[in-house]
Design a protein around this nucleic acid. Structure first.
Lengths: 220, 220
DNA sequence: AAAAATCTTGACTGGTTGGTCAAGTCTGTT
DNA sequence: AACAGACTTGACCAACCAGTCAAGATTTTT
């Protein structure tokens, strides 16, 4: 009866540590998302994962370090999703995959998205270097791809950056503004609504840049 | 030499009070946007408007009440912008005006947008009633308008809600994620870039729902 | 000019929070 | 069984912060 968390199979020392850290990070992500960095308290995070507060400081030396780890973990997830924008695929496929993946992320990682939004809104004190290196490189590579699509006449001439921002903003809106969306929807979105929203976003974006948005690659 | 703020023409009692309150609200909006409710301190707000902290409590009895006033003021601005979505206009005109106005708001009221985003992300503890009344009514009325456009064949059949969310998300992104946008842009957006971004968003949305996005109402 | 009302402000306070610590418990090793 | 290292935790502390207050300054009214 060491942990408050439900029965955990005893594993090796390292496994146990990893699992505890993950449980703390999960709780911290939720609390930071709901209260912001300043509003979150270590006690609230401790309560959220059923550990005494002092124990948190055993695994993470300070609140800021814990927050940093939370943000870094989110960036990792973001990077994986970014890969779904395949530079070798056709515009339809690349964008459809990317948008769908980002919508899925918004649904499954609501809290992570909120923490990221908070961090950027507050001037990205922790992740400024990521923005300037990894994110900038990724963005520039996709901008180049979109420019090639334009040059080849595959899509209408639009500034690629504004298109990317539009995709980020729209997909992340379903996580960051989930509360507003759900209030207007009189409850959480159903599976069907998520599918429909995803499909609508894809269609408007694809048609918006001059592609035929009919579902699937065929001419059906 | 009463105020820290630059030379203020002496006005009537009520005028002075109003002006001081506005100056506090402006400072508070900025600080709340940058630090969140929990991270903001009354001292920081006081410093930001050059008043001693005790003076803030003379005008606003508590931090929460001050925050509430900030949020309410933002909602007012939002409502005015909402009016630019004219229900009687054609889809092209209504959407173009609305998107342009929202982009302008993002540029001129960056902090207000961020406070709103923060409030919603944290579950809208203060403005829940606004979401359920005013915002819901406004949304439903515009959804009805868009449905009529669809029924008349003016635009493609898409779920109006997802379109509205797309517009909100995209336009507000330029305020809420201004730091990210500016980092990727190596500096603030120029006038020309704002115009171009606005035009691009209009074009993608209009074409995305099946309209001819050529600038202006003519057939040029 | 004096009294009243409004506004200003430095100093103070009670409560909260991040972080510490020392005394424990548990687990694996010899 | 005994020892060592890893983990747990209640109690504690210093720093900070929202909010108070009382004494004074300024403006308006009489």
């Amino acid at each position: 009866m060491s942990h408050g968390e439900g029965a955990e199979k005893t594993g090796s020392r390292a496994e146990m540590r990893e699992e505890t850290e993950r449980s703390i990070l999960d709780a911290a992500e939720r609390v930071f998302a709901e209260s912001g960095f300043g509003g979150a308290t270590m006690q609230a995070i401790a309560d959220a994962c059923g550990l005494p507060k002092a124990n948190l400081h055993y695994y993470f030396s300070s609140k800021e370090r814990l927050y940093r780890r939370v943000v870094e973990r989110i960036f990792t997830v973001w990077l994986e999703a970014a890969d779904s924008f395949e530079t070798s695929a056709s515009p339809e496929v690349a964008l459809r995959r990317y948008i769908s993946r980002k919508m899925q992320l918004s649904r499954e990682h609501r809290y992570g998205s909120k923490v990221w939004a908070n961090e950027v809104m507050h001037g990205a004190p922790i992740i400024q270097d990521y923005l300037e290196s990894t994110l900038r490189e990724w963005t520039e590579s996709r901008v180049a791809v979109i420019r090639r699509w334009i040059a080849s006449g595959a899509i209408q001439p639009i500034e690629p950056r504004w298109l990317l921002y539009m995709i980020w903003a729209t997909t992340q809106h379903y996580a960051d503004f989930a509360h507003q969306v759900e209030t207007l929807n009189h409850g959480p979105l159903s599976d069907a609504q998520w599918d429909e929203a995803t499909e609508t976003v894809c269609q408007i974006i694809l048609r918006g840049i001059g592609l035929d948005p009919r579902h699937g690659p065929g001419t059906a």
